[in-house]
Write a protein that binds this DNA or RNA. Structure first.
Lengths: 356, 356
DNA sequence: GTGAAAGCGCTAACAA
DNA sequence: TTGTTAGCGCTTTCAC
């Protein structure tokens, strides 16, 4: 280790690790050239077994670890895809990211996860970071970007929107939100409901699709005149106001289709507070089939999305674009399924009765 | 742009972005040296306003973006802290990460999030990636590492375990899990319960602390002879078996303290299936105060942890260690609080009655 | 205030 | 099969 003394001393005042052994160190110790070490580290087949072993041994003894930034710089490739998550608190997004990561790993890609924390501004900064870091592609898991912004982005870097609606001019992977909403309405209509209201999810593309599906579903069921959309949101707390509105009219609807499970849970709370029994006096359908909908005490009828498959497909799409250089716009739409649990049943016959 | 033609052409076959403008390009266009561009990009005060503007304009026109790997290599610092999350599906962890990220950002640090996906092997690989990437510190959010492994890690890199128990030989930030468990027991004891069982959380350090707190809480309440721990887990599905065991004995306990909210939700499900009304026939307390415990239909009495503060504190701790070079072992323990909702009440008086 | 020049640790021709 | 060499894009002395 004598040969490293000088460097070690010169960095004595530095607080961060500068003492990492380099390829040079390994080469010296193994009695070979730097290039040979590089070949070994990159598993090149044309290295003699003898030298290979010598190099690996030296590397192990020194605790050598390749320097990723240096490697990325030299290669002019990062082998990384950026994943921008709208917010990490939503378990639904977490599952999608798991899928992306799994597929990326299977293809020797790393994933750089950045968290939008529910703010558009942070998404912009995140993309900037991605670009500086040199990610080769970007997956946007539930984005708040506008179509325009995405349009600009896709010129620079292959990107795909996952679970964020299909109305963009970039590639998307998602569930057929519109069909999902139609399934929900259809299920309720089949049970005999006609006055079905929708609690919408705000201004996201996903919300728009589900809202659209609600409308077309109502039309398909011949219930056009009963279309009724209330402002909701994507959080549990967003439901209360809309529910109050709904209950304030002279003859409230008999069923509600909520933008997602969280909103449905909030609706359930408020209905409960208002003394409206679910489902006997009011049926309720959510969306996403997150684990909370399966909780027996909610037991929410909802629409399932194949999250893991969506994540994997998103990664596949991106990696294909990276390797063939194409920037073709792709639209992958997976099929939603209705999961019938305990919050739906035939409509009440009389007026809305309250238990309190 | 003529001066870049050659490069652009030579990379015509490359599929990944090689065409990024470099500092050289900016320097040429602005009519200055590369060094000057560097100074401007790093907001050095000793650059004339005139040149600064020229450089910024050239950069903007070219769409110049600093190359992060190159910068990290040259600086021999990454200004990044690694965050290893046990799993992204748990909203509790998501909140902690939010806190870390916020604090890091406030200090001009980036965060490299890696996902353990509930597997120890993946954590090991993640740390390897962190080390290769040259993160300056590591936060482990709910780790599966053994004390030994952590011991080895902390030699290389400042690290802190967040929400992962306090029994390690590395710095930790967490809630006083033991006290939290005691609070739970104490609350139940104050309601008059004596036969309080514990559904434990498996082999994690956190689980051990909570289990310990349960035992000491029982002792403090003079209920030592009623101590009863059942194998649980950290997922909803893990509760069923333990609950079945519990109900199979001749006179089941009157209250249950579960490792976390998910497990408590699972317990609630199973109790419900078994026709045991909660809380009248069985009281139940969870841990974490995740949003699911607040859902009115669960309305779970639970122990709150200040997740955001924990995240921020973890980052602060790490950044301090990075800047002063110390590797002092720190132990930050935040106070848990009991949140009383609707799953606890005084014990039933007679034997366990079932509604079905 | 500005520029020249020497690296950072690695890869990738090209020779040998 | 192995070594030599020239960068990758940036920072950072050190002169001027």
């Amino acid at each position: 280790m004598v040969y490293r003394a000088e460097r070690a001393m010169s960095s004595a005042t530095a607080t961060v690790a500068v003492n990492r052994p380099t390829m040079q160190d390994v080469a010296l110790r193994a009695g070979v050239s730097r290039a040979l070490v590089s070949l070994v580290m990159n598993k090149s087949p044309r290295v003699s077994d003898q030298k290979r072993r010598a190099v690996l041994r030296a590397a192990a003894e020194l605790g050598y670890r390749p320097n990723l930034p240096a490697r990325q710089l030299a290669r002019r490739r990062t082998h990384t895809i950026g994943v921008l998550v709208d917010n990490l608190r939503n378990p639904f997004f977490g599952e999608v990211v798991d899928g992306i990561e799994a597929e990326a790993a299977d293809n020797d890609y790393s994933v750089l996860i950045l968290n939008g924390r529910r703010e558009a501004q942070r998404e912009i900064e995140a993309v900037e970071t991605f670009l500086q870091a040199g990610v080769e592609a970007i997956a946007l898991v539930g984005t708040r970007f506008s179509a325009d912004e995405l349009d600009r982005l896709r010129v620079t870097t292959p990107c795909v929107v996952v679970a964020g609606g299909a109305s963009y001019s970039v590639s998307t992977v998602g569930t057929d939100d519109r069909l999902g909403a139609e399934l929900a309405v259809q299920h309720l209509a089949a049970l005999g409901h006609s006055r079905i209201s929708h609690l919408d999810g705000g201004r996201s593309a996903t919300a728009e699709q589900r809202s659209r599906g609600y409308r077309s579903g109502m039309k398909l069921a011949g219930l056009e005149q009963f279309i009724d959309v209330r402002g909701g949101g994507d959080q549990e707390a967003d439901a209360a106001e809309a529910i109050d509105e709904l209950l304030a009219v002279s003859d409230p609807p008999t069923a509600i289709f909520a933008f997602n499970d969280l909103l449905a849970a909030g609706a359930l709370n408020r209905l409960d507070e208002a003394g409206v029994p679910v489902p006997s006096a009011m049926s309720l359908v959510g969306f996403d089939n997150t684990f909370i909908s399966a909780l027996r005490h909610l037991s929410l009828t909802t629409i399932n999305q194949p999250t893991l498959a969506m994540g994997r497909l998103a990664a596949t799409t991106l990696l294909a674009q990276v390797s063939d250089g194409s920037r073709e716009l792709q639209r992958h739409t997976l099929q939603p399924e209705i999961v019938v649990r305990s919050t739906t049943c035939p409509p009440r016959t009389g007026p809305l009765t309250r238990t309190r």
